[in-house]
Amino acid sequence: MLDVQKIREGLEVVGSDSTHVGSGGSHHYLSSDLIADIGDKIVLVVSAEEARQQWSAVD
């Protein structure tokens, strides 16, 4: 189980293809089910393109 408390503003978010998606705290939402790892960056289980198709904007 991932500790989502480790997510902080400014952490880089990358897809499973290592392509930049965004930064933590950038007003987009992805399900935590898509997170593979949280370390010096947030790595997703889907590609950057798939992540962009699934995110929701937060006002």
Rank of each mutant, 00 (worst) to 15 (best):
L2K: 02
L2P: 09
D3W: 10
D3R: 03
D3E: 13
D3M: 08
D3P: 13
V4M: 08
V4G: 02
V4C: 08
V4E: 01
Q5K: 15
Q5M: 04
K6I: 09
K6E: 09
I7W: 05
I7G: 00
I7R: 00
I7K: 07
I7H: 02
I7F: 12
I7N: 03
R8Y: 06
R8E: 05
R8Q: 07
R8P: 01
E9A: 12
E9T: 06
G10Y: 10
L11N: 03
L11Y: 03
L11E: 01
E12Y: 10
E12M: 10
E12P: 11
V13G: 03
V13D: 02
V13P: 01
V14R: 05
V14D: 06
V14F: 07
G15F: 06
S16D: 13
D17L: 03
S18H: 15
S18Q: 12
S18C: 06
T19N: 02
T19F: 03
H20W: 10
H20G: 02
H20A: 03
H20S: 01
H20I: 11
V21G: 00
V21E: 00
G22M: 04
G22F: 06
G22T: 11
S23D: 14
S23C: 14
S23W: 10
S23T: 07
G24V: 06
G24Q: 02
G24M: 05
G24I: 04
G24K: 10
G24D: 02
G25C: 08
G25F: 13
G25N: 01
G25D: 11
G25Q: 11
H27Q: 09
H27L: 13
H27S: 15
H28L: 13
H28T: 11
Y29H: 11
Y29I: 14
L30A: 08
S31W: 02
S31T: 11
S31M: 10
S31H: 11
S31F: 03
D33I: 10
D33G: 05
L34H: 08
L34C: 11
L34V: 01
I35L: 03
I35Q: 04
I35P: 05
I35D: 02
A36C: 09
A36T: 00
D37I: 08
D37Y: 09
I38C: 04
I38R: 04
G39H: 06
G39W: 05
G39E: 11
G39R: 08
G39Y: 07
D40H: 13
D40S: 12
D40C: 04
D40Y: 05
K41S: 13
K41R: 14
K41D: 14
K41A: 15
K41C: 13
I42F: 05
V43R: 12
V43T: 11
L44Y: 04
L44E: 01
V45I: 10
V46Y: 00
V46F: 00
S47I: 07
S47F: 07
S47G: 04
A48Y: 05
A48G: 05
A48E: 05
E49D: 13
E49F: 09
E49R: 08
E50G: 05
E50T: 09
A51F: 03
A51I: 00
R52I: 14
R52H: 14
Q53N: 14
Q53W: 09
Q54S: 15
Q54R: 14
Q54V: 15
Q54N: 07
W55S: 08
S56D: 14
S56T: 12
A57D: 14
A57H: 07
A57T: 04
A57N: 08
A57F: 15
A57G: 07
V58W: 15
V58Y: 10
V58M: 10
D59C: 14
D59H: 12
